[in-house]
């Protein structure tokens, strides 16, 4: 990783977080409102996905036709296609956690800036959950 790559990462993180903030993703009340499809649904966050996927889907196609990224040797895009037990079970657990507090990883990290204890505890517990996975990884089926 060169200095350029590190600088890019910083600004990607920064712009991503500004996008999260403007869109309402750093307000769990809006996230819960969006997930409340079976009750009092607030559709506004659907536009986040429309904006993000709409933009990226177009430019993704153009970019991967290039021989290599601008500041590094090759593209590292996941190419697995197998649907596994782990993929589904992991996503299910994540979905439950998301519905409980209204934070997914990005908004959780960005929201620590509000100094509210809850996103800080959320991120700390997220680290514990990730470490817990390492302990159990070998014992879980593929």
């Amino acid at each position: 990783m060169s200095k350029k790559n590190i600088l890019v990462s910083f600004f990607v993180g920064l712009v991503f977080a500004v996008g999260l903030g403007l869109s309402g993703m750093t307000q769990p009340q809006k996230v819960i409102g969006f997930l409340d499809v079976l009750g009092n649904w607030d559709p506004s966050l659907a536009f986040v996905m429309i904006g993000a996927i709409g933009f990226h889907a177009i430019f993704y196609r153009i970019i991967v036709r290039q021989e290599a990224p601008l500041f590094t040797a090759r593209f590292m895009v996941p190419d697995r296609r197998d649907i596994t037990w782990r993929l589904v079970a992991g996503s299910a657990l994540f979905g439950i956690g998301w519905g409980v507090a209204g934070y997914c990883p990005g908004p959780g990290i960005t929201s620590m800036t509000s100094l509210d204890i809850r996103p800080i505890v959320f991120v700390a517990a997220m680290i514990v959950g990730m470490l817990l996975f390492r302990i159990m990884d070998k014992k879980l089926p593929d």
Binding site: K4, N5, V8, S9, F11, V12, G13, V15, F16, V18, G19, L20, G21, L22, S23, G24, M25, P43, S44, L45, A46, F47, V48, M49, I50, G51, A52, I53, G54, F55, H56, F59, Y60, I63, V64, A68, P69, L70, F71, T72, A73, R74, F75, M76, V77
Partner: peptide
């Protein structure tokens, strides 16, 4: 609110596109 959500979404799209284009 929808407009802000869309704008924020596009910014997220821009940032992940930059990550792919520049850092792969």
């Amino acid at each position: 609110e929808w407009l802000f959500a869309l704008m924020g979404g596009v910014l997220i799209g821009v940032s992940v596109t930059a990550m792919l284009w520049l850092n792969g």
